[in-house]
Amino acid sequence: MVTAPKQSDEAALVLFSGGQDSATCLAWALARFGRVETLGFDYGQRHAVELDCRAALRSGLAVLDPLWDSRLGPDHTLPLQALHAISDTALTRDAEIMMNENGLPNTFVPGRNLLFLTFAGALAARRGIRHIVTGVCETDYSGYPDCRDDTIKALQVALNLGMESRYVLHTPLMWRDKAETWALAEKLGGLPAVELINRESHTCYLGDRGTLHDWGYGCGTCPACQLRKTGWETYMAKKAPNA
């Protein structure tokens, strides 16, 4: 049974990659806003298979609740191949995942979230949307500086100044770890939402969709898989006493 949080007749645009976090954010937005559109980016990412997961997640969430179905609006995909061309990272090249000398993981794509949110603002202006939802998180901190709360707050100010708008950037996962993100999905859409996101979303940096684990598909060894695995196991452990 879907929870009924405070709702708004306004529209929202969800940055929707096809991953666990963005799928949970989509459920969060569908529970709150009168119309919800989604936006994905094709930037030549190594795990581009995530884009193929988006349709099943959208349709799967829509059937969980008739209200969500009525609220789900169009999906948009924007090509950002220039980001791939100027990036030299383990997410845009066939490279071993490791830490850089500057202390950041080489899976960090410089400017990625800044560009994503800027393009989201431009699309939102055309679509008449004020609310923009993104799944960035500072709790399970990957070392990505463009996921920090301060970064998002600063970007909201810049977008509003530069576009003469009143955008609100929502980050429902900012202070939640992966276990709490699974719990939020359950709170929003029940166990069917958890099962859908577990099976249909994609996290693995290497793009592995051939190996199914308890926590979903992935190689099981990359940092993204390890984070998702740990979060799932913690979530399930917290549920065990109530089973």
Rank of each mutant, 00 (worst) to 15 (best):
G143V: 05
G40H: 04
A243V: 11
K153W: 11
T89R: 02
E101Y: 06
R58M: 15
L191R: 13
L169T: 00
V194Y: 02
Q226Y: 03
N102W: 08
A237Q: 15
K178V: 02
R130I: 11
S142R: 07
Q226G: 12
L78G: 00
R93W: 04
P192G: 13
V63D: 07
E195N: 09
S201R: 00
R32A: 02
C137D: 06
R130A: 07
N160L: 07
P192V: 13
R126I: 12
R166F: 12
A193G: 09
Y141P: 09
K178L: 08
T203F: 01
F108I: 15
V49L: 07
L78F: 12
T171G: 01
H84I: 11
L169Q: 00
T234A: 08
D42Q: 05
A154D: 14
P5K: 05
W232Q: 01
W232A: 01
A237N: 08
L15S: 00
C222V: 05
R46D: 03
I86E: 07
P66D: 09
G207F: 03
T139S: 14
T107L: 12
A48R: 03
L196Q: 03
N100D: 13
R35V: 14
L191K: 08
H131L: 07
N242H: 13
V136E: 00
A23Y: 00
D21H: 02
V136T: 13
T107S: 05
K229S: 07
Q156N: 15
